[in-house]
Amino acid sequence: MNRRRTPRSASAEDLLSTLQHLTARARQEVGLHQARVELAQALQRNMLPATLPAFPGLQTAARYAPARDGLDIGGDWYDGFLLPDGALGLAIGDVQGHDVDAAAFMGQIRIAMRAIAGSASDPSEVMRRTNDLIMSMDSALFATCSFLRLDPLTRELRSARAGHVASVWATADGRSGVTADAGGLPLGVEPRQHYPVTRRVLDVDGAFVLLTDGVIEGPSLSIEDGLERIRHLVSTHAGADAEELADLVLQAAVFTGHEDDAAVLVLRHTDASAQPG
């Protein structure tokens, strides 16, 4: 007659050995994840501009916050730089993904756009050439972006948008709104794209605020409700300085559930006629 063998109970030593093995593996995985987070944070910190240019009557300020208190680093970025003819270039964007690759890709786009903007005065051309360059890199990633060019003398602001969220504006006399600019596809999706240019003049006291979707959209908030919340906030604080307004807008990201990283770029402008000629 066949007798069923009684399974051998694991000894305390076997259990301890298994536990030590699993603990070592867990520590290794946590260490690798933490290393990637720290690398992405370093990339993000060193690829975003330390300072932004400003002019008399024109202030700029920007803020960035990682997702979930730093557990995820994405590809959100902002930039502000002087162009050879004295104009101000401004950009904000969001790369698909939340890892080291997204952070590195963000840096490539930011540098490419700066270089292209130095030789192309039309925002549409800047966006088109940046898109063509990204397409030539054969990357699986793509990015949304808004690029703006501001003439500090005429206060004319020309902008082009590649699949990016709308901007918000407000003036000190009580007017405010969400931009409805036409745009093209995100960068890196299709070659030979056209990006329409929108023109506006910043000739009164007010603020123009660019942001990424991490500020206005999440599990707790739809993108429409998020934009309306920011519009109301900017309208209420249109007279604040750029630094204060940037802080207030970024703080509003908490209402989204904050599962995405977030970037804010504020352009605070005063009445051009009040400035010395």
Results as ranks from 00 to 15, higher is better:
E259I: 15
R68Q: 15
P276L: 05
D225A: 14
E224C: 04
T256L: 12
A120V: 02
F142H: 13
G174F: 13
S17R: 05
Q251P: 08
T154P: 05
A54D: 01
S176V: 04
Y64W: 11
M137D: 03
A240T: 04
E125M: 09
W77D: 01
D271N: 15
G93V: 00
G86C: 07
D85M: 06
P66Y: 10
R36K: 14
N2L: 01
D247C: 15
S119R: 12
R192I: 02
D99T: 12
Q193N: 11
D205A: 00
E38T: 14
V209M: 01
L22I: 09
D205L: 01
G74V: 11
L148C: 10
E125D: 09
H21M: 08
L210P: 00
L22P: 02
R3C: 01
A172Q: 07
L88H: 01
A10R: 05
I230F: 05
V95E: 07
Q108C: 13
A253Q: 14
A253R: 15
G226S: 07
V165D: 03
H21S: 10
A117H: 00
T130M: 01
T270I: 13
G74C: 10
M135Q: 11
Q96F: 08
D99I: 13
L265C: 08
A62D: 04
L185G: 06
A103F: 10
R25A: 14
D205K: 00
A262K: 12
L245D: 09
R192S: 12
T60R: 04
R27Y: 09
A50N: 08
P7H: 01
